[in-house]
Simulated scan of single mutants.
Amino acid sequence: MSSLSLSPIAVIRTPYKEKFAVPRQPDLVRDGTGIIELLPPYDCIEMVEGLEQFSHIWLIFQFNKIAAGKWQPRVRPPRLGGNRRIGVLASRATHRPNPLGLSKAELREIEFKDGKVRLYLGAVDLVDGTPIFDIKPYIAFADSQPDARSGFAAEKPSRPLSVEFSPVLEERLKKLEQKRPHFSRFIRDVISQDPRPAYRRNKADNHIYGILLHEFNIRWGIKPGTLNRAEILEIIEIAPCDSTKLPLG
């Protein structure tokens, strides 16, 4: 039997510079939008003719930040607290026999400019630079199944945690938002989803975390005095990153 060779037809540009920052599903962070750039020889307007008739699309992509051959037959989904194991094919875990993912995204605009085709999307859950292997239109009558059973992910994740900025950072964000509109809202929405490993949640945690969003390193942790009570995530620092060292996807 001959093997099938696949190559990306596009890459996606997003504000998420590492997988730690990415929401676990699309549509959770409104400002985390994406732009798909078709690659040669697929970057011609004929490739997307008629796609403007659809409001949403499916993206088939590669988990390209996962080391080859590191898949496992059983995984521990964060939605199950990171402790219970289930079969990898009963999850959307990244460590899979073939590191492929499927994601639905709102299609807001198609642009053909300077010989390039770009698709402007709504909220996404992909790392910047992720290879896209295929794009398909979302067809509501066939793809939506309101009465479907969804196992351990039957409901939207529980209410996000509270996030606070220091007064100094609040002032700095006002200046940053001249270039990055709604940047404080974006940071708050991403971190309120609690990207910490599941095993660290609901435990005493004095660790300081870093997360790369756009060209900034956001450092944050549990606000002192809230451990073992209702946790509040506190933004400690917003520092520019060296753009030459940012991961590509």
Rank of each mutant, 00 (worst) to 15 (best):
M1P: 10
M1N: 04
S2F: 08
S3G: 04
L4H: 13
L6V: 14
V11E: 05
V11C: 09
I12Q: 05
R13F: 10
T14G: 01
P15K: 09
Y16G: 02
V22L: 05
V22H: 00
R24N: 12
Q25A: 13
P26C: 06
L28T: 09
L28G: 07
D31C: 01
I35H: 05
L38G: 12
P40C: 02
C44I: 12
I45L: 10
I45W: 02
V48A: 04
Q53D: 06
Q53Y: 13
Q53T: 11
S55L: 15
W58Y: 09
W58P: 09
I60D: 09
F63W: 05
I66V: 15
A68H: 10
G69E: 00
R74P: 02
V75G: 09
P77Y: 08
P78R: 08
L80S: 05
N83D: 14
N83E: 15
I86P: 05
G87Y: 07
G87S: 13
A90E: 13
A90K: 04
S103F: 01
K104S: 13
A105R: 08
E106Q: 14
E106Y: 12
E106S: 04
L107V: 10
R108A: 03
E109D: 04
K113E: 13
K116C: 06
V117S: 00
Y120T: 00
G122L: 13
A123S: 15
V124F: 02
L126T: 03
G129V: 09
D134M: 06
K136C: 06
F141I: 15
R149G: 02
R149H: 06
G151S: 09
A154W: 00
A154Q: 08
S158Q: 14
P160R: 08
S162R: 15
E164Q: 04
V168F: 15
E170F: 12
L173I: 12
K175A: 11
Q178D: 02
R180A: 11
H182F: 14
R185V: 05
D189S: 07
V190C: 08
P195D: 03
R196M: 07
P197Y: 07
P197T: 08
A198W: 10
Y199R: 15
N206R: 15
N206T: 09
I208A: 08
I211C: 06
L212Y: 11
E215I: 07
E215L: 08
E215H: 07
E215N: 14
N217D: 15
W220V: 11
I222R: 02
K223M: 01
K223A: 02
K223Y: 00
P224H: 05
P224Q: 03
R229L: 09
E231N: 06
I232E: 01
L233A: 09
I235F: 07
I235Q: 03
I235L: 08
E237K: 05
I238G: 06
A239N: 03
T244P: 02
K245S: 07
